[in-house]
Design a protein around this nucleic acid. Structure first.
Lengths: 114, 114
DNA sequence: CATATCGCTACAATTAAAGTAGCAATGTTA
DNA sequence: TAACATTGCTACTTTAATTGTAGCGATATG
């Protein structure tokens, strides 16, 4: 089956023929670097090159794709200071943010690291 | 660079040369279907074939990879009833679970869907 | 004017995922 | 107990996503 490059609620995405919002988000955030980008932008605006640097191995091709997708989804936007989270992007960050704390606990328990 | 198939805290993963737990989780959950599998298993144990069915287009190859990765990460396990979330897997579900509610709001606001 | 930075695009190489077939093990039914 | 069904895969080919590298045009900056 052919999925849109841009996952859109109400349209077929990976995991849901009817485009259930949660599956759309999974498709969107599940792509390489999506969450990393949002995570990083929470520290403040960032340029294209800074994002590249942060996401150690991201290629400009992929970064550009992710930027377009996240922009279309109204999660990030371009400003004079560089790319930033939109209001909705910040909301999303807050929703996934507890993951950081949990990840540390999980790593400590299973891999004896903090 | 060569990353392990299995992302492990403290070892290089995509996004972090030192294997920061949050990046390890991003790497793990960012792979195709990882979150979908966890999401589905929260409804109860499931067999390999049921999971395949749920994840509409997943190939057995990929499902098997995801199962191994998530099992190694102590997030799911195999029981007589099929695959289930471990205690830590349930914890993770609870952490990402607010995403479902947020996704609906997001879809409603941006795409006029519920 | 020379140099640097930035936001990309193009394109080839590599890796991941999908799609399909099928097999061994176990369970179920007649 | 022979026949059939289901489950959990593996093997293999095809297709799609990501990486890696080079570099260009636009806008600063010295």
């Amino acid at each position: 089956m052919n999925y849109n490059t841009q996952p859109i609620p109400g349209k077929p995405v990976r995991g849901s023929k009817t485009g259930q919002p949660i599956m759309v988000i999974f498709d969107l955030l599940g792509r390489n670097w999506s969450m990393g980008i949002i995570w990083h932008l929470n520290n403040g605006p960032s340029t294209f090159r800074k994002l590249q640097e942060y996401c150690e191995n991201i290629s400009p091709t992929t970064l550009n794709k992710r930027i377009k997708e996240l922009t279309n989804a109204n999660l990030i936007m371009k400003t004079l200071d560089g790319y930033t989270l939109t209001e909705q992007g910040e909301e999303l960050f807050n929703v996934i943010s507890p993951l950081g704390k949990w990840a540390k606990k999980w790593a400590a328990k299973n891999y004896n690291l903090k």
